[in-house]
Simulated assay, not measured.
Amino acid sequence: MTAAISCQKDNNNPLLQREIPTEAAVSAAATSVTVTTEAALKTAIANAAPGDIITISGTIRLTSTLQCLKSGTSSAKINFTGGTLDCSGISSGWGVKVNGSYWNITNMVIKNAPDCGLVFQYGGYNYVYNVTTSGNGDSGLQIYNESHDNNISYCKSNDNYDAANNGENADGFACKLSAGKNNKFDHCTANHNSDDGWDLYGQPYTVTITNCTATNNGFGGNGDGNGFKLGSSGQNVPHTVTNCTSSYNLASGYDGNGNTGHITTTGSTGTGNGKTLFYRIY
């Protein structure tokens, strides 16, 4: 079947084009593409240029990891939006991997990956808005391996469960294992994930979490079940958690997990956690 693609390009007056700045010219020449098949999507992602808009229509079933390797610019990001990515056709690995910088990823569902749903591995300055990651075989959304300056806003992550480990590793949101600086979460919700709502294990730089909610995490037999796990033993990292709510998690609402850094939990509350609300918070 032929891949369904619709493209639209701006045609500017050449005389006017000579008078505008280079980055603005790139943005003005950007392409808008709507895709309905995996082949069309992967072609658009592979050819993405600064300012492009790539829109998913409906549901696309992936059979291998979608790799976002190109980069936009600070004034002309690559825009990836809409629809649902059903990753159940992937035999192993992540659903979506972002190694590039300056992406806007918005208004999307990423589900059923055999491993993590959406991973930021390298690069930075990415913005994620209104993305739901659910039913994945590890964490819903993960930032690690030097990825920096990512802003995750108004996102949801739920029902992620790693069956191979009886729920030991699948968090709602994970910023861990040597992620870079200036990663932020705002107005996000982690509900009913098998391990923790948020996991900052092994994260060497401050993570800022504001207005976020963690509920009912730890349903896996081996899951820790903290709403917010804020570091790990041997670390001294001052994470910031502001105006958050953590309730009905298997273990603690907020757990420093051995991190001796001064963790700020201003305005953060919760109820009904199986262990306690604040544990090992210095």
Rank of each mutant, 00 (worst) to 15 (best):
A251E: 01
S233G: 15
M1N: 11
I105C: 06
N165K: 07
N226E: 00
T65E: 04
K176M: 05
D196M: 14
V98R: 03
D224W: 12
N216Q: 15
L66T: 06
L62Y: 05
T37A: 07
Y154S: 15
P50T: 15
G83K: 03
T213S: 09
L16W: 12
Y201W: 12
F120C: 02
A113Y: 01
T213W: 09
I45D: 00
D115K: 12
T266A: 11
K156F: 10
I54N: 00
N79Y: 10
W198F: 11
N104T: 14
C68A: 09
G258W: 00
C87R: 10
S88T: 04
N249Y: 02
N249S: 04
G172R: 02
H148W: 08
E146H: 15
N11D: 08
T73A: 04
T242M: 14
G225R: 04
V241Y: 03
S88A: 15
G272Y: 00
A76C: 07
T215C: 13
Y201I: 07
A25D: 01
N222I: 01
N191K: 07
I78A: 11
T264M: 13
A25Q: 08
S75T: 08
S139V: 10
T81K: 09
V131E: 14
S139A: 14
D159I: 14
W198T: 09
C155G: 04
L277E: 03
A46C: 11
N47R: 11
D224M: 13
D196H: 00
A164F: 14
T132V: 13
